[in-house]
Amino acid sequence: MPVQIPKEKWTGKIREVKFGGTQEEGGTRSSSITLGGVSTLPFLYFEGDMPRKTVIAMEVLDVVREDYPALAREPFNDVLESPSSWAKTCVEKYGAEAICLKLEGTNPEEEDKSPDQAVEIVKEVLSAVSVPLLIYGCGNDEKDSKVMQVVSDATKGERCLLGLAEEERYKSISVATMANDHAIVAFSNLDINLAKQLNILLTDFGIKPENIVMDPLQAGLGYGLEYSYSVIERIRLAALMGDQMLQMPILCDTSISWKAREAHQPNEAYGDEKIRGPYWEATTGLSAITAGADMLIMRHPSAVKMVREAVEELATSGGGE
């Protein structure tokens, strides 16, 4: 009995965003990363293109506070004090394709590191690894506007992804982004309309669409994951149906999954936390890429390994008839 294979004919395609500046581009990265170019729902190769596998960046913080779970520290125990060594470990030992440097220590209510100190850290990381960089501020509007400007200047040519732009605070980071031809991460709060609105605001402000990556907020497994899953699916569907203001690549940060105590606290009833924790994060990541994420920012090396393994197998053999 012949079965008619139903194929969707999408009219839209995800825009390509390139980050990481090589020598020709005035930077020092050994290669750049392109996101996007996708014209199908995740891993449905039989009806469209998904030219690249999910990119996995790993998180590096400039300060590690008490609430950073012990289990997630373990793989980095001897490098946590040094962002550059931490980044090096991520790249050389765990194969991170990019590094997301989060400058949380610049927060005026916490360590209050100065913009100069921030630049120092950024430079150290840049020289320690040759992969492309994402650089995030601390979330304090006033401070970020100072920090990100000097960071932008100091990384001219490196084409970093700078974050986070939000609806209420996007101007100074946009200025910093445009000043040195970086790209920007547009963060919205689990809402397709807000995601679109922010993209419109950013492009109206002068950022080119091919310099925007969206972060629609990845909630962790058990803590709102279903909202993220559906918002990402809806964004991706709208993009494939032709909504140009949602055709930016999507990035999800799975480090949030470590907020759940269930994920990593020792508890015999929930099984061995040494593998439960990474699997908790990996599951959060799998939900993001199943819904439509093009890039993940991840925390634990074992979780990275798991997601990569799944992506390899999802990507190599879905061609079918």
């Binding site: 497994l221 279903e226 899953y229 269930e262 099984g271 061995d272 593998i275 439960r276 599951t283």
Partner: peptide, 17 residues
């Protein structure tokens, strides 16, 4: 194993609400 089933059930719970 529980390390597998507990996250998996949690995922199922999320997706099926």
């Amino acid at each position: 194993s529980k390390w597998k089933m507990f996250p998996l059930f949690t995922l199922r719970q999320n997706i099926y609400t």
